[in-house]
Amino acid sequence: MDWINLVIIPAVKSIVLVIVLLTGFAYLTWVERKLLGRFQLRYGPNRAWRFGLGHPIADALKMIFKEEIIPGHVDKVIYVLGPALAIAPALAMFAVVPVGPDLTLFGRTIPMVVADVNVGLLYVLAMAGVGAYGVILGGWASNNKYSLLGALRTSSQMLSYELPMGIMLIAILLMTGTLSLVGIVNQTLPWYFRAWILLAFPFYFITVLAETNRSPFDLPETENELVAGFQTEYGGIKFALYYMTEYLHMIAASGVVVTLFFGGWRGPFVEQAPVLGVAYFAAKVLAMIFLFIWVRASLPRVRYDQLLKFCWTFLFPLSLVYLAITAVAVVFL
């Protein structure tokens, strides 16, 4: 067995990726607070260090040194397991997303992806599915009425929106013919297919908003009716892990969207300087994240019945129609 290529290099890449993602998460909270502030004509965080850049560090330190409370009425094992089960898949989801073209380092060609498996997209869907368990188990184990309702809402919401999402992914898969995200970026589709894929982007983005529990679909944590939804009984680092999960889902979902719809790390002059690819990828992901925050700053939260009705009676049939047209086009073109 090829230990270096299969274990050591992936381990190094995983650790680097996790560190990058966690730093990204910390500063994403800063970016979001700053942007929301600007959207609402206020300054946003500006106390700790310059431009408030010290806030994420202060937040992290505070969370680590908080008291660990496990209330008496909870299901202890599942209560602690919940946040861990939410964060691990959210971090791991990024493993199949290529962040750049192959780099040559110390005479070795290193692909800029942790694992190039040929079930890439299925893996992303699976990790998203496992992530839902963390939320649902945490809410159920809390044995609190708010938490339970929040968890139930999350389950229904995430299950419902997974359908149109999955169907749109199948349509994209029909055109690309591969599930591997590396394969999808490397391939060149005819212009009419690329235009057709872009047409699905607004609807795919809506399902992503719902899957990541982002505003306007942040029903799992509606402050005005459920306090904090499924995480009501969580505090300290366990709350922080749930909080991280939301942002990491956002980063990972942006990475997948960029890979599927906007050519991943592709851009001008990438062939000459492969490092540019990583920069393009980061820039595109940042643009997507800006879109997430923009939506949050602009739209009010939808009502729960509207949320489900919109999914089942609009998005689901629409995605089926999209799939049918794509299938006919792929077979006959």
């Binding site: 274990v7 861990a84 199949v96 498996v117």
Partner: peptide
């Protein structure tokens, strides 16, 4: 064995949690 990197990644994230 192509899936080993995935396992490694899951171990790393699990360890972090």
């Amino acid at each position: 064995e192509g899936y080993l990197p995935i396992l490694v990644m899951l171990l790393v994230t699990g360890a972090f949690a």
